[in-house]
Amino acid sequence: MKDLLERLNTKYSLTDIEYQRDNLVFLTIRKENTIDLVTHLRDYEGFTHFVLLSCVDWIEDGKFQLTYFLNQPERKYDIVVRTMIDRDNAEMVSAHHLWRQITTYQRELREMYGINFPGSPGVDENFILEGWDEIPPMRREFDTKKYSEDTFFPREGRKTHDPASYMKEKLYPTEPTTAKVNKTDE
């Protein structure tokens, strides 16, 4: 595994190499070289099994992290190729020509995160959602709770009490206490 990474590092500039386990390594590469590296791993290093294409929303950095999981079935180790792309107008080079299932992943990411993969077959088709007019729902700023409160209605007559505030109300309503308990009950 170490040799392989050294070989790769001469060709590509890799950063943030982290061993999660002996046979599972995460690394980061610039966006432009990502598909190049993935293709190289598949064609020359025997990473023939594509495990997963995933996305992590680092909203505070304004980035999406695209994560390509590659598995080397002969030698039984995994390389996870990460790349950061801008959150605004998110776009990534399509990899659908490398493995068939990537088409599905890219369709899903297009729908759930709003990342475009130009040229990927059927990338704009609905995958799971139909008639969705909100922002892509897997983005961090999409608030599921608020959405469900706006869309559905709560069961009537439900009311809960915070023990500390309720005890203040009952036992020592006028006495000074800390600000949080002093807040009126919801």
Partner: peptide, 9 residues
Amino acid sequence: TATCPAHMG
């Protein structure tokens, strides 16, 4: 908090 005489947080 209720039991603490000073009702500390």
